Simulated scan of single mutants.
Amino acid sequence: MNERKILIAIPDVTPDEMMHIMHVIKGLKEEDLDQFLFLYKGKRKSTQEIMIMTLIGFLGVAGIQRFMVKQTGMGIIFLLTLGFCYIGTIVDLVNHKKLANDHNQQMAVESIQLMNMYKT
């Protein structure tokens, strides 16, 4: 039941992301799951968003994808060095799915922590 609800709420969820979400939400009540999904959907980034922002790096605005995944320091370095002379931008383009997955896993944990904080 939870898997179906997640797939409806987040249609582009990846298998790795789904496994992580299922681990994070284990034991949540139905109304808590709704709250979690609401918070998580607002924080997660799709792989397509990360890929598009990485491609924009080739137009001279390198590092936007790093700012999106809350890696501000790397974003500034990419911006100042033109994505390490485009090499870092190419690496991020190849690894855009991993960037998105790592960010989304962190946001799932952050969302559940935020929920627990407001419960008490």
Rank of each mutant, 00 (worst) to 15 (best):
residue 16 D to F: 03
residue 94 V to L: 13
residue 39 L to H: 07
residue 115 M to Q: 12
residue 25 I to L: 08
residue 64 I to W: 08
residue 27 G to C: 03
residue 100 A to N: 00
residue 14 T to N: 02
residue 74 M to F: 14
residue 82 L to V: 03
residue 96 H to Y: 13
residue 95 N to L: 14
residue 4 R to K: 13
residue 31 E to S: 14
residue 100 A to C: 11
residue 91 V to G: 00
residue 50 I to D: 14
residue 33 L to R: 11
residue 64 I to F: 02
residue 85 C to H: 08
residue 63 G to N: 05
residue 1 M to S: 15
residue 47 T to C: 05
residue 26 K to M: 13
residue 89 T to E: 10
residue 99 L to I: 11
residue 21 I to T: 02
residue 31 E to L: 00
residue 42 G to N: 10
residue 30 E to I: 14
residue 20 H to N: 06
residue 43 K to R: 15
residue 109 V to F: 11
residue 119 K to N: 06
residue 77 I to T: 11
residue 26 K to D: 11
residue 18 M to D: 00
residue 107 M to N: 06
residue 79 L to Q: 07
residue 10 I to C: 04
residue 36 F to H: 04
residue 27 G to A: 12
residue 75 G to H: 10
residue 23 H to F: 12
residue 120 T to V: 07
residue 39 L to F: 01
residue 98 K to M: 11
residue 37 L to A: 08
residue 66 R to S: 10
residue 8 I to N: 15
residue 69 V to E: 08
residue 109 V to R: 14
residue 35 Q to T: 09
residue 25 I to W: 00
residue 56 I to K: 03
residue 12 D to Y: 06
residue 50 I to Y: 14
residue 55 L to C: 11
residue 102 D to I: 05
residue 115 M to L: 14
residue 42 G to H: 02
residue 59 L to V: 01
residue 87 I to W: 12
residue 61 V to I: 15
residue 118 Y to S: 15
residue 70 K to T: 02
residue 32 D to L: 09
residue 56 I to H: 11
residue 111 S to D: 00
residue 82 L to H: 00
residue 7 L to K: 14
residue 58 F to H: 08
residue 119 K to T: 01
residue 85 C to Y: 10
residue 63 G to K: 11
residue 68 M to N: 02
residue 68 M to Y: 08
residue 4 R to M: 15
residue 67 F to E: 12
residue 89 T to Y: 01
residue 90 I to N: 03
residue 95 N to P: 03
residue 55 L to Y: 08
residue 100 A to L: 12
residue 104 N to R: 12
residue 13 V to K: 12
residue 17 E to K: 11
residue 54 T to D: 03
residue 92 D to T: 10
residue 34 D to L: 14
residue 95 N to I: 12
residue 43 K to Q: 15
residue 76 I to Q: 14
residue 26 K to Y: 15
residue 19 M to C: 03
residue 10 I to H: 04
residue 77 I to K: 11
residue 92 D to A: 14
residue 46 S to F: 09
residue 22 M to V: 06
residue 120 T to D: 12
residue 48 Q to V: 10
residue 24 V to T: 04
residue 67 F to M: 13
residue 22 M to K: 01
residue 74 M to H: 13
residue 11 P to I: 03
residue 52 I to R: 09
residue 97 K to Y: 05
residue 114 L to M: 13
residue 85 C to K: 09
residue 2 N to R: 10
residue 21 I to F: 05
residue 106 Q to V: 00
residue 40 Y to W: 13
residue 87 I to R: 08
residue 15 P to E: 10
residue 116 N to I: 09
residue 98 K to N: 02
residue 29 K to L: 06
residue 45 K to W: 04
residue 100 A to V: 06
residue 60 G to Q: 04
residue 35 Q to S: 09
residue 113 Q to E: 15
residue 78 F to L: 01
residue 23 H to K: 15
residue 68 M to D: 01
residue 28 L to W: 05
residue 68 M to V: 09
residue 87 I to K: 13
residue 7 L to Y: 03
residue 65 Q to G: 10
residue 117 M to D: 05
residue 96 H to T: 01
residue 2 N to K: 06
residue 78 F to M: 07
residue 62 A to L: 02
residue 88 G to P: 08
residue 85 C to P: 03
residue 51 M to N: 05
residue 111 S to C: 12
residue 58 F to A: 13
residue 82 L to S: 04
residue 45 K to A: 05
residue 83 G to A: 00
residue 53 M to R: 04
residue 108 A to C: 04
residue 25 I to V: 15
